[in-house]
Design a binder for these strands. Structure first.
Lengths: 129, 129
DNA sequence: GTGCAGGTTCAACATATGTTGAAGTCAAGT
DNA sequence: ACTTGACTTCAACATATGTTGAACCTGCAC
């Protein structure tokens, strides 16, 4: 059943920054843009669960693969705090599907250019030369 | 030998815009940033060779796959005006290599997360729980 | 209970990637 | 030669992705 809450350990902005390898300002930026979620202490300080650093590491790589912060936030939207392996698996599947689609598009265009003989008149008809 | 120049047809900003599916302002932007090259008429108007629209179409897809305009310009730097198939093939090879590397990194991180059992402490050691 | 490292917000700055508008010039058809 | 649509440059604006600094507040260790 695994209904027990895991370790209630939380992390400050600075800790998440170190753990994820980005600047504290970036951690705040990701929170305001929905890539990670925070609760607040009585004194208004952010506290993150242990998935935060992980989300950021994935987000950075997803950005390198062409996804915007908005797209990444949307992708992570289904993820609960301290997500289950199943939740992560679903996110991973959708993420990989998306980036592979983009790579497929790129490759198709390149292949069309090369097989096109001379140059890429892909979407164009060229009736009168 | 094929030393004969191909068709000396050139294209205006507006023509390249239509052929590549971007706005004229974007065509000028790509020229100032080295994605495409222009010569100038006596009256200072840009004239592009027929590879320009093609470069832009590839550039848009490469951007979707995570490359910056600067990176794309660097990739196209070796390309001559009206590039040979060999030149295009070399650019295509390097481009695909780069984007596939990024996808590999993304997948590796995701796999590490899932096989990690619980969550991603990838680069971190966690001596005291 | 005090000190201070590290937290808060907010505004300004910075870079990337473009778009828009003004003011003026070019090219191509008639 | 004129007209007119498309071109030129330049500055301002817009959005995305952050960083930096000022001014102030918290949490924790002593």
């Amino acid at each position: 059943m695994t209904l027990l809450a895991g370790s209630p350990r939380t992390f400050s902005v600075g800790e998440v920054a170190v753990d994820s390898g980005v600047a504290p300002s970036a951690v705040r930026f990701y929170e305001t843009h929905g890539v990670i979620n925070a609760v607040r202490t009585a004194g208004n300080q952010r506290r993150f669960d242990e998935s935060a650093a992980c989300r950021i590491q994935v987000a950075k790589l997803a950005q390198r693969a062409g996804l915007s912060v908005r797209e990444i936030a949307a992708l992570f939207a289904d993820l609960s705090a301290d997500p289950t392996p199943d939740e992560w698996a679903d996110v991973a599947r959708r993420l990989v599907t998306e980036v592979e689609e983009r790579v497929r598009n790129l490759k198709a265009q390149l292949a069309a250019m090369e097989s096109g003989g001379r140059l890429c008149e892909i979407g164009r008809d060229d009736p009168a030369r």
